Simulated scan of single mutants.
Amino acid sequence: MDTSVLTDSLKLFALLPFPEIDPVAFSLGPIAVHWYGLAYVVGILCGWYYARQIARRDHLWPHDRSPITAAHLDDFMVWVAVGIVLGGRLGYILFYDFAAIAQNPIRAIEIWNGGMSFHGGFVGAILAIILFSRRNGIPVLSMLDTIAAVVPFGLLFGRLANFVNGELWGRLSDAPWAVVFPTGGPFARHPSQLYEAGLEGLLLLVVLAMLVFWAKALKRPGFIAGAFGVGYALSRIFVEFFREPDVQLGYLAFGWLTMGMLLSLPMVAVGIWLMARARVSPSS
């Protein structure tokens, strides 16, 4: 064996072990409450509260009047939860697990054997926003901006939950912070879930907050939504270079292109278009 390969292998074995965190946060009798489920709940609740704080500040909006009320946001929680869950599951089926489900359709409802796709949940949330906004007489772009500003909460907690579950880990690495995941073989890997939590969650949340409260970007309907699309997509594409591709798909082309990258490219294009077309309101 090449000595350099052996040395690298030993270095990989010597890095951080995966912290022993029980995926079950707590149990209520026979009901086990998982961290992943809690992440969805906490992300939605934090987003709901933050959206209410944005909506109640009239000076942030065109004509110095918010088109969204607290009651709107209360009602929308059900709509967006359904959109995210259905869209996320359907997106995973179509983009990541279609071949297996085509052979065994019952697998589509076996959620314990599958996952959720962010891009599918994103589409589901957008459809929920469009339908809800039109039904309640809210400008679609303003509602889209509000939700885009709070989505990073869900991404932050969701990626942290992925780490706790030891899933969606990264590629082999000898970095000092690399982790040996229980389901990732004997070698250390990039904790790509934490990279995503930091970039798609925390950093994007701060950048969008600066645009909302300092740059008054809500006065340009569509700008915040566009900034979110570009910010998320570029973060995801970057992290995909460190994240292990889904085993059933592997690399799609060139030895590095992944499904996550491919699905993020349209978000960059649409995001740039939304930001470019956004105009300052005459009364802002």
Score class of each variant (00 low, 15 high):
Pro30Ile: 07
Leu202Arg: 02
Ser142Leu: 08
Glu240Asp: 14
Gly87Gln: 05
Leu257Ser: 09
Trp273Phe: 14
Phe18Arg: 12
Phe98Cys: 10
Asn136Ile: 00
Gly43Asp: 05
Pro182Phe: 05
Leu274Ala: 04
Leu203Ala: 15
Trp48Asn: 12
Leu94Arg: 00
Leu155Met: 15
Ala225Glu: 02
Leu263Gln: 05
Leu28Thr: 12
Val123Tyr: 06
Ser27Pro: 08
Phe163Arg: 04
Leu274Lys: 01
Ala100Asn: 14
Ala215Cys: 09
Leu168Lys: 02
Val42Gly: 07
Trp61Tyr: 13
Glu200Gln: 14
Lys216Pro: 03
Gly114Arg: 01
Arg277Glu: 10
Ser133Pro: 04
Tyr40Lys: 02
Ile129Thr: 11
Asn162Glu: 09
Phe153Gln: 02
Ser117Ile: 08
Ala178Cys: 09
Ala217Met: 14
Val42Glu: 05
Ile68Thr: 08
Glu20Ala: 15
Ala25Arg: 08
Ile109Gln: 03
His63Phe: 10
Ala39Pro: 04
Arg89Tyr: 03
Asp97Pro: 02
Leu12Asp: 06
Ala148Gln: 00
Gly255Val: 07
Arg159Thr: 00
Ser192Glu: 00
Phe122Pro: 04
Met267Glu: 13
Thr7Phe: 10
Gly154Trp: 00
Val230Glu: 06
Phe98Arg: 12
Val78Phe: 15
Ser9Tyr: 13
Leu12Asn: 07
Trp61Arg: 09
Gly88Pro: 09
Val179Glu: 02
Leu90Cys: 13
Leu131Val: 12
Leu234Ser: 13
Gly47Asp: 03
Leu16Met: 14
Leu90Arg: 03
Leu10Cys: 07
Phe153Tyr: 06
Phe18Ala: 15
Ala32Cys: 05
Phe157Thr: 07
Phe228Glu: 01
Val140Trp: 03
